[in-house]
Computed example of a mutant assay.
Amino acid sequence: MSVALEVKNTYEDFILEKDILYFRVGEHGLVSFHGKNYHIKKRLNTEEIQKMTSDSSFFKVNTDCYVNTRKIQHIGDGKVYFEVRGSESKYTTITKLRQHRLKEIVLQQKGEA
């Protein structure tokens, strides 16, 4: 008897809203996706990038970086934290101008949940 297991290849088959903490859009369509303990670079076309950056689950924190608002643990001191593990915390920087707005969005989402 043979049983085939469905194995999810995180590097090719990730779900943007579920698996990605934040992503950075680079030159020539190169996008760097950051997950819990990995990061993946993929080249995407303009339409795919436009669709991702307009997704309401993601918020633009600086010129090239978008964070998953559903994965945020804490916002403070110009940083957005995704995990709380001391020095191993995953974070990215945020401009002070956008920090206040992001806090409002996160509080609103937690209120709806």
Rank of each mutant, 00 (worst) to 15 (best):
G86T: 01
G78C: 09
C65P: 01
T10H: 00
H39E: 14
G86D: 03
I15W: 00
F14E: 00
D55S: 15
S87F: 05
H28D: 14
K96F: 10
E104D: 15
T10P: 00
Q99T: 10
E6G: 01
N9V: 00
G86E: 01
F82R: 10
Y81M: 13
G111Y: 01
T92C: 15
R98A: 11
L102P: 08
Y38K: 10
T53W: 03
I72R: 08
D19P: 01
G76R: 08
V25A: 06
L107W: 05
E47Y: 08
N45C: 13
V3H: 12
E27A: 06
R85G: 08
R43K: 15
S2D: 09
T69Y: 02
S56N: 12
D77I: 03
T10A: 02
I72D: 08
N62H: 14
T63H: 13
I20S: 00
L5Q: 10
Y11C: 05
R85W: 03
H28E: 14
T69S: 09
D55C: 11
F23T: 01
K41R: 13
S56Q: 13
K110E: 14
R85A: 11
I105P: 01
Y91I: 03
T53Y: 05
E12V: 01
D55P: 02
S89I: 03
K103D: 09
L97F: 09
L5I: 09
T93M: 10
V84I: 14
E27C: 01
D19H: 01
N37A: 11
Q50E: 15
T93F: 11
T69V: 15
R85S: 11
I75P: 05
T63C: 06
T10I: 14
E12T: 11
M52F: 09
Q73Y: 06
V106S: 09
R43F: 06
E12A: 07
L97Q: 14
L16R: 02
T95F: 04
I94Y: 08
V84W: 06
N45I: 08
R24L: 02
K71W: 02
T46S: 13
R98G: 04
R24W: 00
C65I: 13
D13K: 00
S57R: 11
Y11R: 08
V67E: 07
S32F: 03
E48F: 02
L21S: 05
R101F: 07
K42R: 15
R70V: 01
T10R: 00
Q108R: 13
V106N: 11
F58P: 04
K36I: 08
E17Q: 10
I72Y: 07
Y22F: 15
S54Q: 15
I15P: 00
L5F: 09
N68C: 07
M52W: 14
S89E: 05
T53I: 15
K79W: 04
K96M: 11
N45D: 15
G29M: 07
E6C: 02
K36E: 15
Y66F: 15
I40M: 06
T63Q: 13
G76A: 08
A4S: 07
I40A: 04
T93D: 12
G26Y: 03
V25Q: 05
N45F: 09
I15R: 01
F33R: 01
Y91A: 12
T53P: 05
I75F: 04
E104I: 07
T69Q: 12
V3T: 10
N45Q: 12
Y11H: 10
T46E: 14
R85N: 13
Q73C: 10
S89L: 02
H28S: 12
S54Y: 04
V106M: 10
